[in-house]
Amino acid sequence: MPVEEIPKETLLWMYETMVRIRVHEERVAELFAQGKIPGFVHLYVGEEAVAVGVMANLRKEDYITSTHRGHGHYIAKGGDIKASMAELFGKKTGSGKGKGGSMHIADLDVGELGANGIVGGGIPHAVGAGLGIKLNGLDRVAVAFFGDGASNQQNFHEGINLAAIWKLPVVFVCENNQYQISLSYEKQQAIKSVAERGKAYGIPGVSVDGQDVLAVYEVAKEAIERARRGEGPTLIEAKTYRFRGHFEGDPQVYRSKEEVEWWKKNKDPIKLFEKKLLDKGIATKEELDAIWEKARKEIEEAVNFAEESPWPSKEEVVEDVFSTPTKGVLVWQW
């Protein structure tokens, strides 16, 4: 999509949001290496244009479902970064009060229905959000994010089929980063593009360059508008690449250094977009540098917040399991 057709404000939001995700993820990688973040984390570096190109078309009241690689979705949907950073640390002030961690970050207030530790697990939740939207007659949409690996899961097939037969306002976004941990895309499925699967369910399937934020924006815009008009779901495949390992600490024996370097050098979504903004005179180098500066400051504040936050107390182990109290024993402890 030509940049001239997109408001400057939106363009700068896209740039800034990609930068915020990048800075966040690189900082998390450092913190993880320093042993400050327990468990394991899957980072989104290199894939920023997908979340951002889609989310530039969403409103606060729209819904998304995310994945184990979810920080980018959360940030782009407007999730509270202090709360998510504290969650990564396992602190009381975290989005999940330290009970969920990286793979279970959610911000229901902005329609982020949750990352997910089960590959494909969140796809039907977006369908459910779509059903809720439709039955309540709301002007909203739901977007399911998931990986290429997830597109072989039952929930992908069942979820898309349900949304298709019920014409729900749901957009399915497959982030095809070409690997399912170590298994490369062509060893997972016999079709060229995940988008081809749309045909099997009677819905449009579109493949797009996931490193080009404007291309993602354009394709997502059409799909989301279509959903808002009540014309049903679309399957989008965004071809992308993760610049880091599957998780932090992945030895990456399944791909060459050259391959990774090629992508970083030629297909970095932020560098590509930055060039476009400068070439077209939409922003100056100083303006863009200021965006990086602001992002670093924001993330640092979040890190400080997380570091200074208290640990959850022991009593909290048994809290937050159920909403409605009952008679009898609800949360069993011997």
Partner: peptide, 11 residues
């Protein structure tokens, strides 16, 4: 899963 998602939205 659709029911779970619909419930999670409160809709």
């Amino acid at each position: 899963g659709t029911a779970v998602g619909a419930a999670a939205t409160g809709l």
